[in-house]
Structure formats: C-alpha cells, structure tokens
Design a protein around this nucleic acid. Sequence first.
DNA 1: CCGAGGTGGTTTCATATGCAACTATTCGTC
DNA 2: GACGAATAGTTGCATATGAAACCACCTCGG
Lengths: 160, 160
Amino acid sequence: MPSGEEHQGVPQQGPGRLDLNQFLPYRLNRLADRISDELERMYAQRYDLNVAQWRVLAWLSHCDDLTAKKVCTYTNMDKARVSRAVQALVDRGLVTRTPSARDQRVHDLHLTREGAELLSRLIPEAQEWEAELVATLSAGEYRDLLNAMGKLERQLERIG
Amino acid sequence: MPSGEEHQGVPQQGPGRLDLNQFLPYRLNRLADRISDELERMYAQRYDLNVAQWRVLAWLSHCDDLTAKKVCTYTNMDKARVSRAVQALVDRGLVTRTPSARDQRVHDLHLTREGAELLSRLIPEAQEWEAELVATLSAGEYRDLLNAMGKLERQLERIG
DNA sequence: CCGAGGTGGTTTCATATGCAACTATTCGTC
DNA sequence: GACGAATAGTTGCATATGAAACCACCTCGG
C-alpha cells in the first residue's frame, strides 16, 4: 500500500485527479487481490489446487448436489473454466461426475471420500486463517462489513 | 449471488462444511470481481483501456512523477504487466516515458496532454459510477467500510 | 578505478482464461 | 411425433498474465 512516506511525488488532489485511496473499486480490488493471493498460495502449495478448483470444492462442501451450471452461476466463473476445474478434480479422484438420470445433458457432481477428506483438512485451515485476518475487527465491525458488502452487491444487481 | 431460492440442494452446515457466504475472502472476491467487471467494461468499451492501463493512468493522475517500479509497488501488479501497460499507453500517445537524468535505469512517466484529457473525461465517469454504487450506504457506513478495509490490509501485512 | 552484486525494466516462455464454435440432449410447438 | 430453439457442457483458439531469464546501469568494497 502506498503509505505516505513512500512517495516523493506527493499525491495531488484536484479536478481531473483521482484519489485512489478513496476510490472504493480500487481499494476493494487491492484488498481482495491480496487476500486471494495469500489463500491461493496456501492451497496451491499445500494441496495443489488452483482458485477455480478450490471454488468448486468449496461449493461441493456447501451444497450436496451440484452441476457445472450451478457452479457457474454461484461463482460467476466462465463455464469453460468450471469445466476444466471439474475435469482436473475428477482426474485427481476428488470429485465424481455422472450424467443425471433426469437430464442427460447435466452431470451431477459429488465429492468422493478423498475429496471430503481433503476438504476436512483444508477448510479448518482456511477458517483459521480467516479468523486471524479479521482478528482486528470487533464482532460488530465484522457484521457491518459483511452487511455493507451485501448492500453493495444488491446495488450492483440494480445498476449493472 | 446464490440467493436461497436458487438451489434445490439446500446449503448444508456442519463440520467439514464451509458456508461461503460467511467466508470473508470469498465474499470480498466476489464483490471485487463484479465491480471490476463493470468498471472494466466501462473503460474497455469506451476508451479501449484494460485494467492495468487504467491503473497506471489513475496513478499518474494521482502522483506527478512515477516510475514503473512505483506503479508496481502501489498497485501490486507484476512488473511485466506494468511494463506492457506502459508500453501500450506510450504507443497510444497518452504517456511519455523518458530515461531519468539521475539514473539511466529508471524511466520517468508522465501524462501527455491527450492522456490528461482522456482522464479528465474518464475520472468523472468513474466517480459518478462509484457514487451510484455506494448510494445505498450512509456516509457513516461508507466510512466504516473503508476503515474496516484499512484494518484488514494492515492485518494482512502483519500475518502475510 | 574495477569487478561483484543489486536494481529498474524488458522479453521470452508456459500457463490460465474467456470467447466462440461445436456436440449432445431436451423442450416447445405444430 | 418432428423440427427448430434453447441449454449443459467441452474444445479450439487467441490473448493476458506471471515467473524467470535477461539486459543495461548503478553502487559499493577493495
């Protein structure tokens, strides 16, 4: 973060200038990127999962029956990306993909035993890390933060 | 967002399961991604700028003299990415890049007149859009949000 | 001075991603 | 039922990105 002492070229204000530190999209992106980088390093190095794969797994821990389509809508990822992530997870034996009895187009996704075991190790680690991250926020601040983010998401739907 | 009515496979709770909607990294990423997508569409379609280029320009509007290195540290972008973004901006005549008199390794970056003009159109649009985005937050909520994000960033530095 | 190591920046290469075309299946309408 | 439109998912292709190699250039110790 560009904390004051770092730049000689002092930040300028005024018309035609943008104070990025007050610009929410910038701040949000920077924060999300850094958090994402940390987490990514964590499960990439320890479990050899990329972000897309992790998201699929996390949703599988969250909802029992999923399809690629659902993952797409939940995670906002491109369907090709989801398809490849699922493929990799199937190849590693963490997930099964079986054509649905009802509709042969869709494939039901399920965790295998190994997938569930991996998650049972990974999830507590992730939660522990998150707890450390938010340790400086009071319970109220944390609630307000999630709350404000929820409002922003709803507003995005509206103005999108 | 996976609002309740969307899934038949109702979200499950319990040990070994992760409620993504309460998991800050996930929420933050989803929100930041969506905002980023919107903004990206805005200045990609209208001004033919990608995110990296936009960030360089925004920092140039913010600080008068920059170098690629500074942009890297401020924005957390890879130096190759910055290098290419700057190159594109120079090619388009929005930015000048001149070897520094003091140290021939570093290149001073400056906005050209056209670059400044483009920004003077782009920045108000971005601010207007941001204003619409945060319209549902009270001034206090907005302040608290930035505040909480600041705390999280500082905490990240600590535990990174 | 001179050479080793550090630094700013560019380029090369492998990979991840998004878009678009494509396949297979289902649905709606006649 | 049968054909055209829609939908789930995969694949091919072009591009954006990050890591690492690389190229000046600077600097510091002798």
